[in-house]
Every structure is written in C-alpha cells, then in structure tokens.
Amino acid sequence: MEHSQKRRDFLKTLGVGAAASTLAFKAPYVFAKNKVTLRVMGTHVTLQEELRQRAMRELGINIEFTPMGSAAVLQKAAADPSSFDLFEQWSDSINILWQADAIQPIEVDRLVYWDEINPLTKTGKIVPDAKLGAGDSPNKLLYAQPDGSLGETPSKLISFMPYVHNVDSFGYNTNVIEKGIPYETESWAWLLDEKNRGKVALVNAPTIGIFDAALAAQAKG
C-alpha cells in the first residue's frame, strides 16, 4: 500500500474498536522496567472506569481513558492524532480519521480472534442470502485497498477493529409516560406525539438521533 510517511511513522493508533483488539494481538509479553502507558480516546459509552481497572490488572500496563462526546472526540482525534494511542468510536468516524492520516491500518493476521467476528461487520449480512439494509454499512469502509482507499473488498489490512453491535431502541419513564404494551402500543411515534411534548428527547449524536427521528416519522405515518 502507498501509505503516507505520516501514517507509517504514526504511533500505534488502530481505529474504532481498537480497545478491544489490544487483547487479540499475537505478540509475546514485554517485560520492561517502566510500565507501558496506553492512551485510549473514545466516548463515554464504552470508556468506563471498571473496564479500565480490569484491563490494567489483566494486561499489566497503565491505561489512560479520555472519554468525550461524539463530536468532540472525533474533532480532537482528527486535529491532534498525537494525543492518543488507541481510538474508540463508531465506524462512521473512520472516513474522517483515515483521510486525516490520524490512524493506520491493522494487520488481520495479528488478530487472534478475527475469525470469531460475525459476518455482519465483514460483509453487511448475517447470512449470505440476507438482504442488505438501507443506509451505510461498516463493511464498506472496513478494508484498506491497494490504492490506499477504503472499501469492502477483503484484504489483510483493516481500518478498524469491530467489536460491538447494537440496535436502536428507546427507554421511557413510566412515571412520566403511561406504560405501553410491548410490540403493540409502544411505538417510535411517541417521540412525535403531541401529548409527550417536552417529555422526550433524541441522543445528540447525528448518526443516531437523525435515524431515530426517521423511525418516529415512519411510525407516525
């Protein structure tokens, strides 16, 4: 691949999900007089103190977490890549960081558990004959291509380590909004229901909140 000198020289920044991939490298333990300090930048969602403490105990290294909001962490990482060693966020941040030369690719052959990652992230489908969903898909920018771009053609280099899947859902306080019946009266439409004005909110991450609003509009008809 034709990587820029900046990317080749870059500190071992791995990409989205890299915090999980730390455990998966085929590398021997390194014994040094001074403990290694790993700086992990990401969101409040996953950079939790309990995880940091456990990782330090099991890995025998120092770990520093820098949790921020979605927009802030992406801006910081793109503008100042020297401020972190591992970056953890959603896959939709990868294009920005890749184009900014803020991250470098991960070698698939060094990931012990790569084969255990289900095909949803790798191909966009749980099973081969599944229908592709609407919108973007992480597999479209997972693999580093020979020309330095990102794409869905499998290669030995990936732009991020996928490690979490989730689905959009909503929660509500039954002291404020009357309890509904699951799969019958509970609905995304509640977000746009006039009687819930001032009682509902969207998450401020654009790539999540916008789609939640779209689901609400669809449910409202």
Rank of each mutant, 00 (worst) to 15 (best):
D115G: 07
P81Q: 09
D85G: 01
Q104G: 14
K122A: 05
V127T: 13
I117N: 06
D92I: 05
F87A: 08
T123L: 02
L97W: 04
Q89F: 12
N95V: 14
G124L: 02
I126H: 14
E116D: 02
W90C: 11
F87L: 06
L120R: 02
Y113N: 14
Q89V: 13
D109N: 13
L97T: 06
E88H: 15
T121W: 09
D115M: 09
N118F: 04
P128M: 05
I103C: 03
A100G: 09
A78I: 01
I117M: 02
A102E: 03
A77Q: 08
D115S: 08
K76L: 01
S91C: 01
Q89W: 11
V108K: 04
P119G: 02
K76N: 07
W90H: 14
I117D: 03
D92M: 06
D85S: 04
S93N: 12
N95R: 15
F84E: 04
T121V: 04
P105Y: 09
K125G: 03
I106E: 07
I103W: 06
A77Y: 01
V112P: 00
A79N: 10
I126S: 13
W114N: 02
I106Q: 09
V112Q: 14
S93H: 09
I96R: 11
I96T: 14
V112I: 15
P119E: 08
I126W: 13
F87R: 05
P128E: 11
E116K: 07
W114V: 01
A102V: 01
Q104T: 12
D129K: 11
S91R: 00
L120W: 03
V112T: 08
A78Q: 06
G124H: 05
I103F: 04
N118W: 07
S83W: 10
Q89S: 15
S93C: 08
Q104S: 06
E107R: 14
P81H: 10
E107L: 14
I103R: 03
I96M: 12
A102W: 00
A102M: 00
F84D: 06
V108A: 05
A100D: 11
S82I: 13
A102D: 07
Q89A: 15
L86K: 07
I96S: 14
Q89N: 15
E88C: 15
P105N: 02
W90T: 14
V108T: 10
P81D: 05
A100H: 04
Q99W: 08
A77V: 05
E116A: 10
V112F: 09
L97N: 05
V108L: 05
P119T: 09
K76F: 07
F84M: 13
K76P: 03
T123Y: 03
L86D: 09
V112K: 15
Y113Q: 02
I126F: 14
E88F: 15
